[in-house]
Computed example of a mutant assay.
Amino acid sequence: MKIFKGIAFATVTALMLSACGGSSNSGDAVVSEEKEAAEAGATAVVYTPTDDSQVTWIGSKPTGKHNGYIPVSEGELFVEDGNITSGSFTMNITGLDVLDLENDPNDDEDMYDKLTGHLMSPDFFAADSFPTATFEITEVKEFDPSTMSVEVKDQFETEYTPESAKEFMVENPTHWVSGNLTMRGTTKNVAFPAHVNKEGDKLTAKAKFNIDRTDWGLMYGDEASVADKAKDKFIYNTVNVGIDLTATPAEEVAEVQ
């Protein structure tokens, strides 16, 4: 089913698709300067993300990795004739959770608090100054595998090297998605493949891609500044990002609440 027409929708993090134009130093997805947002038509129906919508993340260093999610707190997607034509959503950075520590009974609660506190600090998200991140749709078009070119980033090999964009990407993508991701006061346009589907009044969008966190100013432990990587004293700049979004007509959400 054709879900998106003439738009794009992109998150977290910086990724793969040379066919979409532009590039990032991550060697994964297309990251470019901010672009004009798509506009909703007069007959568009508003869809609202459900409470379980979220953006997932995996951060890695040579000696281990952590994973978690950032909840989607609000948003609007505009749909016409079964196609998304524009929209945006907001991520609540202060609601970030670290799942591997929260769910591991062998980990000390202090470790969980220490890591979440560090991620909220100016070393990473600077949540006191930037408590939210946003994604604003600029274009979505049907997926054409013949135009896809994935450049695999050359990374320092360890047991915990982040999965490449090619390994990590969503299965059976249906669309190319792009949009303006604003995080920590910096806006970049990102593009990536996604699987989108509409069944009845339920709209879903799933994507998995990589970003270079330093494109948005998250510089702590920047691997590019490490003179001797054999010392393992760095955090990989590549972050594995996932979008798991479900939306229903706004009136329906209002009735449930």
Rank of each mutant, 00 (worst) to 15 (best):
P193S: 03
S32V: 12
K141E: 10
E157T: 14
G22R: 04
V98Q: 03
W176C: 06
N25C: 02
K202P: 03
A227M: 14
W57N: 08
N189M: 07
K5C: 03
N210T: 12
G217Q: 06
L181D: 06
N92Y: 01
A205M: 12
P105T: 04
G179L: 12
D222S: 05
P173Q: 13
M1Y: 01
T187A: 05
F130L: 08
F234G: 05
S164K: 08
G185Y: 11
W216L: 09
V30H: 07
K65P: 00
T134D: 15
V177A: 14
I70A: 09
E252F: 01
G117P: 02
W176M: 13
V177W: 01
D215P: 04
K208N: 09
K153W: 11
G221M: 09
T138N: 12
T158E: 13
T147Y: 13
E33V: 09
K166I: 10
N197K: 01
S73N: 00
D228F: 08
D215E: 15
F130T: 10
A14E: 07
T174G: 11
Y220T: 03
P145K: 15
F130M: 06
E34G: 03
F125P: 00
T182M: 11
T116M: 04
H118N: 12
P162T: 14
A44Q: 06
K202M: 10
D228C: 07
G221S: 10
A250Y: 02
V72H: 02
S18M: 09
A38G: 07
V45M: 08
P145R: 14
I243G: 07
E142G: 13
V30K: 11
V31M: 11
S121W: 05
L115Y: 06
N106L: 09
A42Y: 05
G64C: 01
A194R: 01
V72C: 03
V140F: 10
T63S: 13
A191S: 05
M16R: 12
P49Q: 02
N67Q: 08
E39N: 12
S164G: 12
E109F: 07
P62Q: 08
F234I: 03
Y112K: 14
E223M: 14
L17F: 05
D232N: 14
S23F: 02
M169S: 14
A14G: 15
N106D: 15
T174Q: 12
T147Q: 15
S178A: 15
C20D: 04
S225F: 07
K35R: 15
E167S: 08
E109S: 14
T13K: 03
V140Y: 09
D108R: 07
V45E: 12
V253W: 10
P249V: 04
D107N: 13
T134I: 05
S129H: 07
M219I: 09
K231E: 13
K5N: 11
M148L: 14
S53E: 00
A194M: 02
Y112T: 03
P131W: 02
T238L: 01
F78Q: 06
G41M: 05
A247F: 02
E80K: 08
A205P: 03
L218Y: 05
F168E: 10
T134N: 11
T238P: 00
T186F: 10
E157G: 11
A194S: 02
G41L: 06
T56Q: 06
K202H: 05
